[in-house]
Write a protein that binds this DNA or RNA. Structure first.
Lengths: 153, 153
DNA sequence: TACGTTTGTGGGTAGAAGTGGGTAAATAAC
DNA sequence: GTTATTTACCCACTTCTACCCACAAACGTA
């Protein structure tokens, strides 16, 4: 999907402050394409976390929804349920974004967060949930190896 | 996979210093393509070691992950589990990279390291682990010969 | 063999990054 | 229109990282 040049990697353990702000790691800020103008669109992940799409990547996500036939009720529902939780956030001069309260709640986020690079997007996790997520896939290493084989990694 | 011109060979016994830095051997630095700008992406190997991909090679690795359909949970997990341990590192004017603490731990690295050229990537091993790894494949020389046959070496 | 250059190792510190908080400005509520 | 609440902007401090220096050992050349 991505042709915007973003390249987010790594995992950072930061804190959510009393004002609902979290720091975007400096390396990720440097990775963000200039056209996004320090701006992400924050929304719910398909997994129980918050996703930050760079503004430029979000344009591509939007295009996919636009291309969905909205005459079908299920498509409208899918679109509505994805887009209504989305909100643009811009990081300030200290590199922090203020996360919408609804997303903080959806992500089950307390004081500690794990910020995970996913190449063309960023995920913000409650550390405990991330660990549970990893545990859920334990025992499926052969399936993971099949994917590694498939993409010749 | 690689068409970036990198060509890392050899094995070097160096040290990891108190600040978590390790020297990239001079010959390997000379082998690194200029477009990588002295930068690798360090991440977990499939084997218990650290891998350094040249930045240019990492772009190709990324492209494979981007091409994976992220609508599937298993693909998301696969991507997350690979990419969240990855981090760009740039060697300084003395040729050293600072390795992320998480990777040092994953690789079981103490004071001594073995730096191994793997053509388009570099592996950083705890010497004892590398030895154990070699021992694991002892006795399978006929299988190795079959591979040599297959690629007409 | 002698000497100059390059390489690997150890360490100090200036500058960058993350965290916590105050308040002016903008927005919402009455 | 006024008041209350929220958001955006700014500051200060602590910790971590990037940059620089020095030196010994190894290597290459005359």
């Amino acid at each position: 999907m991505d042709t915007t040049g973003n390249s987010f990697t790594g995992s950072y353990s930061y804190t959510l402050d009393a004002k609902g702000r979290v720091n975007i790691p400096a390396k990720m800020r440097k990775s963000l394409d200039p056209a996004s103008d320090s701006t992400f669109v924050a929304t719910r992940g398909s997994d129980p976390c918050i996703i930050l799409y760079p503004a430029t990547v979000w344009k591509q996500v939007e295009a996919k929804f636009i291309a969905l036939n909205k005459g079908k009720a299920l498509n409208r529902h899918f679109t509505r349920n994805f887009v209504r939780h989305a909100e643009a956030v811009q990081y300030d001069s200290q590199g922090r974004v203020a996360l919408p309260a609804g997303l903080i709640e959806f992500g089950g986020i307390g004081k500690n967060v794990e910020i995970v690079g996913m190449i063309d997007r960023i995920e913000i996790w409650d550390p405990q949930r991330l660990q549970e997520m990893e545990s859920r896939f334990a025992g499926r290493e052969d399936e993971l190896e099949a994917i590694a084989n498939e993409i010749d990694l």
